[in-house]
Write a protein that binds this DNA or RNA. Structure first.
Lengths: 324, 324
DNA sequence: TTGTATGCGTTATCAT
DNA sequence: ATGATAACGCATACAA
């Protein structure tokens, strides 16, 4: 049976209020040096530890942050989990990871959105809007990544400039077979690819993978190349795709970049450790997390703050995989 | 202002108890079809959502699981976070990630060990004991990995057999320079290496890295080889080390496995995607997580259950990096 | 400087 | 079938 402040109070013959005061030791509340010490040592000896549930219920603040994120098996998102973890811990918060389930939708007007009530939410790459603006939530939200909700704090990334650069880079040697590899669902990168290819007077060529898993991409690419021959360049939707493709191509003895140029997107560490490091559109994910946390912290401290919104630039990192 | 069961009760002219009953709708509690429906629709319309804080405080169960894990930036642990997430969510729990801070030690006798009270703890690769047995905690704990506490449920991995195999594998071609790469702190793998090398009548050779980061290992290996020449085989403490070493060796134009054989440990996906896939001691991490969750679930359902403890076997996966 | 009383939102125990 | 009332452990406005 856990010991409560009442137990301590009884033991010492004081009121539980006094104990509470000592334990929370605000600067502005005055308590005698004597009782303070007695309470402190008693708490220590009796093995007291605050019940955060009760504390949160009474105090209205949970000291808990919800990280709303999907696909944490992917290194890119896994890394973001790690970054936020660091920030959250360093600031004496706890972090609960939740996933956004598009099916159920958001349960607005309650702190239940996150499964658990929390003091703030970080939402990473939310897939789509949910009808109601995020600002309707009872706690502050900071949105990160592709999804933009004008009503809340936001740290975005602009992939367009870098993606456009990728296409110039790949088309620079002159017209050739440049393919795009990704899942069926189109996005910014997809359309930038298509536009650039069309502008170059070429036909777009899509290598569709059913999911983002490397193993899957590997075999899809193998089959694709066997059936259609190998493109001269491939722009991959993300680095996991690029790595899967890399391996699939190597399986067939195809050389990179001699036979085919490869570019990915995200900037995960793994792309640097292959024999032929892969060019990529590097997202400033560490900075995004740092800034996102900063925004949330400020917002929690002062809800009336003006909207904090920034869009960071991704940058093209050219490595061996696309050098001629 | 969130709507509470009292609000609903007032609105409908019933007691909050009734509302609570309807909402929790136990099979054995009887309530008239009429009120049931009225409460349900009112709750819907008023946008009621239960306060899990209050629910947990009153009910004694949080529906929250604590994952106690470190180094989540490493793919191996990142993956485990993902696996547990899946299990936890599928069972309608929430998951909070905590780190074990050796400095503060454990605060036993309270549910505060995890930062937040939770219904159960999964502790992955706990570094060391904390004086008190884990069974002293107020909630069930399942321990995973290297650390063994006989007093609680446990899913372990035996790396010894596989590590011994690694050494036979590497020494099979006859006596040669076989080095061990790892952090300074010795462990099972380290000692198995040392023993095997000594038994072969050779001198152990250690490549010490200050931390587990790939970038770091990469440069350490480069410097080491420049200074001492290249060993003919390297057994790496883990796959991240192996990948860092791989890249460092390739930087110097050293061929794998022609010039040096490489073996890692853990079995992360990345080792398969290099041009020369790296041999590794694969841990059954998915199975560990599955079983660990199973144990915890059972324990939470029935605390009086006999101890559940299993040790799984890691297995040596030989790939190109160590083939002659 | 310290104590009393009340509330946080819910579940649980007894009544009725 | 439903309602009063008491926990749960703590914080806090107000009183002393």
């Amino acid at each position: 049976m856990p010991v409560t402040i009442r137990d301590i109070a009884r033991q010492l013959g004081v009121s539980h209020t006094t104990v509470s005061r000592v334990l929370n030791s605000k600067q502005d509340t005055f308590i005698s040096q004597g009782t303070r010490e007695r309470v402190l040592t008693a708490a220590q000896e009796m093995g007291y530890y605050p019940n955060r549930l009760a504390r949160a219920l009474a105090g209205g603040r949970t000291h808990m942050i919800t990280l709303w994120i999907n696909e944490t098996h992917a290194p890119f998102y896994g890394r973001m989990v790690y970054y936020f973890q660091q920030h959250v811990w360093e600031n004496n918060y706890e972090m609960v990871i939740s996933a956004y389930s598009g099916e159920t939708g958001l349960l607005l007007g309650s702190s239940e959105v996150s499964g658990w009530p929390s003091d703030g939410i970080i939402a990473v790459d939310l897939l789509r809007s949910m009808g109601t603006p995020l600002s309707a939530l009872p706690m502050p939200v900071v949105t990160l990544g592709v999804f933009y909700d004008p009503s809340v704090d936001y740290v975005g990334v602009d992939l367009n400039a870098a993606a456009t650069e990728v296409m110039s880079h790949l088309l620079e040697p002159g017209p050739r077979r440049v393919a795009y590899l990704g899942i069926a669902e189109p996005d910014q990168r997809h359309s930038i690819y298509t536009r650039a290819v069309r502008e170059a007077g070429l036909e777009p060529e899509y290598i569709i993978v059913p999911n983002g898993l490397r193993a899957c991409t590997r075999s899809v690419v193998r089959d694709y190349v066997k059936a259609h021959g190998c493109p001269e360049a491939i722009f991959c939707h993300n680095d996991d795709g690029a790595i899967g493709a890399y391996r699939g191509l190597r399986d067939l003895g195809i050389r990179i970049p001699d036979d085919v140029a490869l570019v990915g997107c995200d900037g995960i560490e793994d792309t640097e450790y292959l024999d032929t490091p892969i060019s990529t559109v590097a997202q400033p994910s560490e900075e995004m997390c740092r800034l996102g946390w900063e925004y949330l912290k400020r917002r929690m401290a002062d809800p009336s703050l003006p909207l904090q919104q920034t869009v960071l630039q991704a940058r093209l990192v050219i490595r061996e995989s696309s050098r001629r």
